[in-house]
Design a binder for these strands. Structure first.
Length: 860
RNA sequence: GCCCGAGUGGCGGAACUGGUAGACGCGCAGGACUUAAAAUCCUGUUGGCUGUAAAGUCAGUAUCGGUUCGAUUCCGAUCUCGGGCACCA
């Protein structure tokens, strides 16, 4: 009776389903004396193509951990669901006329079936989909909470908007405007990335991906929803420190948040034709202020018009117009050739009274800092390039430390001529009050002076921008917002949620950027219950990230109709103990989800301030040819085919055996054959293929000590590999193979030994494990059997191979009892024939001995 | 350009805190079983040189250098590949 994986896998999948083996009980029914473990996969977007082999990689890893933890006696939460809103379904609808809801449900069914065929131990009773009404009701509910909150800068947290102190003496309209200007979700006319082909705006971070696909993205001013994530910049940055995340992801988020510390400085304008005012600039190097030879305003800077002289007005206006037509991307691409125009006005350097020209240049971004900079061409690469192009003066004000007079002269000459641009820290020169100070000291001194004289202050800036939160799409969460005819906006009340998507059949947006929902007249035009005013609904929808910002909370209490998740369930299960997904979500999803969680924390709906304690990124699986799988290359491996040919257990095992989880590695059909062979070897060890009965090699009275030692070592290795969190299951599988190879060499082995082996195999290859476990006469499910312990005494080596070296080269080896004294192994080394041969006639200088390891005889 | 990460047999990859480099698998070679093949089992497999063999010997973890009795592991420089950011002042 051969190893019939198809039959076995079907049988046990049915068994698990019928017996609800992986059901995590509701909170009230849980044995709370046992520790909890929340192991989460990044839920998939159910695309029409079905699963690819990359999906099972991460899912297998989490499944191994989940099954292991259950056997270790943990309460395990291991859910799955669907990130089911998204553009592809909508594009498909435009092409075929099939409603996104229908195609999405079809895709979900397909994904569900495929995931079930992989034997993952998900609790399917907790399945959720972001596009289902009972899910997005709560996405909308959270949005309303965000909308109705403001950030209390002093307390450093969000609060309900009712608690916002409003300045007295405001009329109703002013009061409303004031409140609206503080909300964590707000409407603003912002320059957005408009993609005409997709008919929607894109978040900054989404642009590169779409451009790569060949879409055009242009800049356009549109009234859009934004979330005030910038208020959380500092907390999002600091929170990273405590997380057990890969350092590169932390680094990416850190760069994305982009904190920089410096000063803002006020320059008075000494303008042409009596124009005046002042410009505030931001710099991280206030110590270089004596080297400022010009000021630059971003084209969109408010002051540009005011300070531009009449004779320069035409030129400046034209420059601004040109700049406004460029997208951010174009600006960046054209960056190599910096351009700018003189405004005709001058600014006065507060530290030395020097008059310097004020220019407009689009290499300065309006959205960062104050939208204005001081140009220090001696010590900033960009300013240097610009100054050389427009022949603006270069003044050396920071010299590298330790230069002598001659060196300093040379350095100055090179700086002035533009040959050198020193951007590092050093010693201030030509810098009045800070001459001779080292950079950190000089920065302090200048900041103190600026603050004392009211010319500036210490400032912190972040690269992080507010999150552009609306999209002109159909297939997303509608905003629970109405615009009243009096021009005010209000959020829906809880009993009006969910605000369900209209069954509109038109999925195209207007060229002007009118979203598809604007076509649904009846849905859009309403009258407000409370005031009786005419109103229109918000017709934008939320971006795909919205649902994934909080789905991990819904899993904990998926059928709760009163709350998005009960506080008790949240407190018990959160934070997520292990979160596995692809590197592509390192910044966006993971920063947005942290942000929402922190808002919910501030408002008292969750009890921790970070949602994901440990994060792990799985690597990509490449095609057999070593390049990324793609339809056009024809190197795509379909998991369904693999399962048909080799079975799920082989596939799971192979995906883990290919290498460390985080590595990018190529698929190999030969490789999976090897793992299939391994499972067949295990099968034949237990089952007599002729008769179908248990193998006659299994005996109760056979206690081969070396095998017992080996199974203990194998248990230890597998246990340690799962516990240490490095996700290197390739070595666990190697050890299991070694064990099986050894077992093949023995005549007989005890039932207990093979049972222990099957237990540790079970998280990796659960179907064959269940089958063999029950054939050995045990009651299913193997998932309910405790994980085997190893005997620490038995994993210790009794004999160790001592290496004898002469001058660091291995010359001989000897097996000795573990724990033999250094003296003894040293004597043994000196007594060794081969060692003797190599030290013959030479003088022993030194002998290095490491217990249980080696002896190195150093001779001359 | 800047910031991360990685370079180990024909291939995927092992090697604990510096202590036998190449575990395990794939591939390949040889053998057993078979009329034959597949399947299966067993043996070998970093390279060079010497040797019929046993064995010996040198080189070897991208390259060059350093620290050390001893370096895949630590330090410095260089090269290559992968990923991210890209005028953030």
């Amino acid at each position: 009776m051969n190893y019939n994986f198809t039959e076995i896998e079907k049988k046990w999948q049915d068994y698990w389903e019928e017996n609800q083996t992986f059901r995590t009980p509701d909170l009230k029914d849980i044995d709370k004396s046992k520790p909890k473990y929340y192991v989460l996969d990044m839920f998939p977007y159910p695309s029409g193509d079905g699963l690819h082999v990359g999906h099972p990689e991460g899912y297998t890893a989490t499944d191994i951990v989940a099954r292991y933890k259950r056997m270790k006696g943990f309460n395990v939460m291991h859910p799955i669901g669907w990130d089911s809103f998204g553009l592809p379904a909508e594009q498909y609808a435009r092409k075929t006329g099939i409603h996104p809801e229908i195609s999405t449900e079809n895709s979900i069914s397909r994904f569900r079936k495929q995931l079930k065929s992989l034997g993952f131990s998900f609790d399917w009773k907790r399945e959720v989909a972001t596009s289902h009404e009972d899910f997005y009701k709560w996405t909308q509910w959270i949005f309303v909470k965000i909308f109705n909150s403001y950030y209390d800068d002093e307390a450093g947290r969000a609060r309900p908007i009712e608690e916002l102190p409003v300045p007295p003496g405001l009329v109703e309209k002013e009061r409303k405007d004031y409140v609206n200007s503080r909300r964590l979700a707000y409407l603003a006319d912002v320059p957005v990335n408009w993609c005409p082909e997709l008919g929607t705006v894109l978040a900054n971070e989404e642009v590169p991906e779409q451009v790569e696909k060949g879409y055009t993205v242009v800049r356009k001013n549109m009234r859009q929803w934004n979330l005030r994530i910038t208020k959380y910049a500092e907390r999002l940055l600091n929170g990273l420190e405590r997380l057990d995340w890969p350092s590169n992801v932390k680094e990416l988020q850190k760069n994305w948040i982009g904190k920089s510390t410096g000063a803002s400085v006020i320059f008075e304008i000494d303008g042409a034709a009596g124009r005046s005012g002042s410009v505030e600039i931001f710099t991280t190097r206030p110590d270089t202020i004596y080297g400022a030879s010009y000021l630059i305003l971003a084209p969109e800077h408010k002051l540009v018009k005011e300070i531009t002289s009449e004779e320069k007005a035409d030129e400046v206006r034209k420059y601004i117009e040109d700049a406004s037509r460029k997208s951010d991307l174009e600006r960046a691409e054209l960056a190599k050739d910096k351009t700018g125009v003189f405004t005709g006005s001058y600014a006065v350097n507060p530290v030395n009274g020097k008059k310097i020209p004020v220019l407009v240049a689009d290499y300065v971004l309006v959205s960062y800092g104050t939208g204005a900079i001081m140009g220090v061409p001696g010590h900033d690469e960009r300013d240097n390039e610009f100054a050389r192009k427009y022949s603006l003066g270069i003044i050396p004000v920071v010299a590298p430390e330790g230069l002598d007079d001659e060196g300093l002269r040379e350095f100055s000459r090179k700086t002035v001529s533009g040959e050198e641009c020193f951007t590092g820290e050093g010693v201030s020169v030509n810098s009045g009050m800070i001459d001779g100070m080292r950079t950190p000291e000089a920065i302090e001194a200048i900041c103190n002076w600026l603050e004392a004289n009211g010319k500036g202050r210490r400032t912190v800036n972040f690269k992080l921008r507010d999150w552009l939160f609306s999209r002109q799409r159909y297939w997303g969460e509608p905003f629970p917002i109405v615009h009243l005819e009096d021009g005010t906006i209000k959020s829906l009340s809880n009993d009006e949620l969910p605000l369900v998507l209209p069954e509109t059949a038109v999925f195209t947006s207007g060229a002007s950027g009118e979203p598809p929902l604007a076509n649904a007249g009846e849905w859009v035009n309403i009258s407000d219950q409370e005031t009786g005013l005419k109103a229109i609904r918000e017709t934008n929808t939320m971006p795909q990230w919205a649902g994934s910002c909080w789905y991990f909370l819904r899993f904990l209490d998926p059928h709760n109709t009163n709350e998005f998740c009960s506080k008790e369930a949240e407190r018990f299960w959160m934070p997520v103990d292990l979160y596995i997904g692809g590197m592509e979500h390192a910044v966006l999803h993971l920063i947005y989800a942290r942000f929402w969680y922190k808002v919910l924390y501030d408002l008292g709906y969750v009890s921790y301030d970070e949602p994901f304690s440990k994060l792990f990124n799985q690597g990509m699986i490449l095609g057999e040819d070593g390049v990324k799988m793609s339809k056009s290359r024809g190197n795509v491996i379909n998991p369904d085919d693999v399962i048909k040919e080799f079975g799920t257990d082989s596939m799971r095992l192979f995906e883990m055996f290919m290498g460390p989880l985080e590595a990018t590695k190529p698929w190999s059909t030969k490789g999976i054959e090897g793992l299939n062979r391994f499972l067949k070897r295990i099968w034949r060890l237990v089952i007599d293929e002729e008769t179908g009965a248990l193998s006659s090699k299994i005996a109760d009275d056979c206690w081969d000590e070396s095998i017992i030692r080996l199974i203990n070592k194998t248990i230890k290795k597998v246990t340690d590999d799962i516990e240490d969190g490095d996700m290197k299951f390739n070595t666990s599988i190697s050890y299991m193979m070694i064990f099986i190879n050894e077992l093949y060499k023995t005549e007989r082995f005890s039932k207990e030994v093979i049972e222990k082996f099957i237990l540790i195999l079970s998280p990796f290859a659960p179907h064959i494990a269940e089958e063999l476990w029950s054939r050995l006469g045990n009651k299913p499910s193997i998932q309910n059997v405790p994980w085997p312990e190893y005997d620490p005494e038995l994993v210790k080596e009794e004999t160790v191979t001592i290496v004898f070296q002469v001058n660091g080269k291995v010359r001989s080896k000897l097996d000795m009892n573990a724990g033999t004294s250094e003296k003894e192994i040293e004597d043994a080394a000196l007594d060794d024939e081969k060692v003797k041969k190599h030290i013959l006639g030479k003088q022993i200088v030194r002998i290095v001995t490491v217990k249980d390891k080696m002896v190195n005889v150093v001779v001359k």
